[in-house]
């Protein structure tokens, strides 16, 4: 496999429905990127599909959760010396055509983390009202904790440089990492910037944040943000 300096991390758990589309999308629309699929012990055909098409897949032998899967991707990025890494979910919610643009912006600046925000230009899939309220709350919380404004703190579309790759490879939250890691990156004195992106509605699968779990999400992530603000190791 030819090595480039940009990596797409695709965590996949039971994503047989759209893993192929996701990867083909990346191959076509983000040709300067390598990719790695982290198959978190899927029970469907995700693993078989990856083998069949000879995709670059890392199979976790035990189901370890989304956080551990993504972290494995960052470990991979660190080990093979990638300059930039971005996580793209296996459900096809993100648009691969933004990847090149994001990487180019990062190459031309000293930003450590670039977040694709849905709420700067307010284009594309905007999420439900209730969810947007939750997102606004986290924007507010992060503002209080760090003084910085992050308009889309729950965006999974975040490109990071070598320095943040190292941090994530060593320490990454178990679940719902986005707001928490934003706080810890800002607190470490690293640079965060947001650019407008458009997101699609998910093609298959269900959001990891069902209504039932949203209470857990709010409490856990709030606490995690506060911990991250006070506990930079």
């Amino acid at each position: 496999m030819q090595r480039r300096n940009r990596l797409v991390i695709i965590p996949a758990f039971n994503e047989a429905g759209c893993i192929v589309d996701t990867i083909e999308d990346i191959r076509q629309n983000a040709p300067s990127f390598d990719y790695v699929v982290i198959n978190d012990c899927s029970r469907d055909d995700t693993g078989e599909l990856c083998e069949k098409y000879h995709y670059n897949v890392v199979n976790l032998p035990i189901n370890s959760g989304i956080g551990a899967a993504v972290q494995t991707g960052y470990m991979y990025a660190k080990r093979y010396g990638y300059e930039y890494a971005i996580q793209v979910d296996g459900d096809g919610q993100h648009d691969a055509s933004f990847l090149e643009e994001m990487a180019d912006i990062m190459e031309d600046s000293d930003i450590n983390m670039l977040i694709g925000s849905r709420f700067i230009k307010k284009e594309g899939f905007q999420s439900s009202n209730l969810r947007r309220l939750g997102i606004k709350y986290f924007t507010f919380l992060i503002k209080v904790l760090t003084g910085k404004v992050v308009t889309d703190p729950t965006s999974g579309m975040r490109m990071v440089d070598r320095e943040v790759i190292k941090i994530f490879a060593d320490d990454y939250p178990k679940d719902y990492p986005e707001p928490e890691t934003a706080v810890s990156i800002i607190k470490r004195g690293l640079k965060i910037k947001e650019i407008p992106v458009r997101m699609k509605e998910r093609q298959a699968g269900v959001s990891s944040i069902s209504f039932k779990r949203s209470i857990y999400y709010m409490i856990k992530v709030s606490l995690a943000c506060v911990m991250a603000a006070f506990g930079v190791k």
């Binding site: 890392v58 032998p61 370890s64 991979y76 080990r79």
Partner: peptide
Amino acid sequence: LTQEVALLHR
């Protein structure tokens, strides 16, 4: 360990 095993496999 899980992550390490997976990466080694790759």
